[in-house]
């Protein structure tokens, strides 16, 4: 849907789609988001990355008008969401952290209701809804009560409902958290295609791979503070220095035994990743240790910094913490919630 009411904000050559100015949220004494400033440009795919409780959801809520900032302002296409809520709401689509469909209604009824809330003309709505149901693999189940839907289906329906009115700016709060590979792929593919067609995307995620692969730019938020904001590649360059060494040993030793080489070691599957400032020394120590313990070295690889390294460094979490938080692999078990 077009909306001529909302004026365009321009920053140099680029149109600004989303802007946060000194955005702050306090709950009593506690500051959930602190003086957040950022601009997301029209057509950009932006990722907000951060550990649990960092303030990602709070940020999205303030940017979309679900929560009133304690201080600062949120602008969408140059319009302040608190001053012109209806103009802004017409052009944004929001997928909240927790899927929120009406379980008493069918998928079809849910989508029709969403279309009616946004004044999408009936004929147009029906066409679009059919298309969305197809795209998200829900067409066959469209007349089933959504109470019977699996978590992945609910997630896909929630996203479809956010797209019925053709938003120009799409907010997704952890869209793929806790889903299986198939749902995850489906959702990522759809969002990627929307972005290619010009939709500005603001996505929060725990999955570093997801941010790395999808986003043009990434912000890292920790304890309510934005600690980094750049393209994934430049972020990796910035922290340079540290290199990780991936090693595979037989028999597989315990994490503790490898701590002799470096205190910063992480286990991924049957391999280990050792972080070091000085790879040549670490590699020779690894070989020494393997000889002493009579382990066979199956493979050794040095890896240049990943976005994960950036994340680890900036959020002050150790590699082991990240592992424990299951922040790494999208194929890993997600947190058990909808």
């Amino acid at each position: 849907m077009k909306n001529e009411n909302v004026c365009e904000a321009v920053d140099g050559e680029l149109k600004v789609a989303i802007e946060a100015r000194d955005l702050t949220k306090q709950y009593g004494e506690f500051t959930a988001v602190n003086d957040l400033n950022l601009k997301v440009f029209d057509g950009e795919f932006f990722g907000l990355l951060g550990p649990n409780g960092a303030g990602k959801t709070t940020t999205v809520k303030m940017l979309t008008g679900l929560s009133k900032p304690t201080k600062g302002e949120a602008l969408i296409m140059g319009a302040n969401i608190m001053e012109r809520p209806l103009d802004v709401k017409r052009i944004i689509g929001v997928v909240p952290e927790v899927s929120n469909i009406y379980v008493e209604m069918t998928a079809w009824e849910n989508l029709i209701f969403a279309a009616e809330l946004y004044d999408v003309p009936r004929g147009e709505a029906v066409e679009r809804i059919k298309m969305l149901l197809e795209v998200f693999g829900l067409y066959e189940r469209r007349h089933d009560k959504s109470a019977n839907f699996s978590k992945g289906m609910r997630r896909r329906l929630t996203i479809a409902m956010a797209l019925v009115h053709n938003p120009r700016v799409l907010f997704l709060d952890e869209p793929t958290s806790g889903l299986d590979v198939q749902s995850t792929r489906n959702i990522r593919e759809v969002v990627r295609r929307l972005n290619r067609d010009g939709v500005t995307v603001f996505m929060t995620t725990h999955f570093i791979d997801e941010a790395d692969n999808l986003c043009n730019r990434v912000g890292i938020i920790n304890k309510g503070q934005l600690v980094a904001l750049d393209t994934p590649e430049r972020l990796k360059q910035k922290i340079g220095g540290r290199v990780s060494i991936e090693v595979s040993l037989q028999p597989i030793p315990s994490l503790e035994e490898l701590k002799e080489v470096s205190s910063d070691v992480m286990k991924t599957g049957d391999k280990f990743i050792v972080y070091t400032e000085n790879p040549s020394i670490t590699i020779s120590e690894l070989i020494k240790l393997a000889n002493a313990k009579e382990w066979k070295i199956i493979s050794v690889k040095t890896l240049t910094p990943s976005l994960e390294d950036v994340f680890v460094k900036l959020t002050g979490l150790t590699a082991v913490d990240v592992e424990r938080l299951e922040l790494i692999r999208p194929s890993g078990r997600g947190r058990g919630r909808e």
Binding site: T64, P96, I101, V103, A114, L117
Partner: peptide, 14 residues
């Protein structure tokens, strides 16, 4: 409770 209220708050409806 179901979070669906957010849907109504987010919609262009006063």
């Amino acid at each position: 409770r179901s979070g669906t209220i957010d849907r109504l708050i987010l919609a262009p409806v006063s």
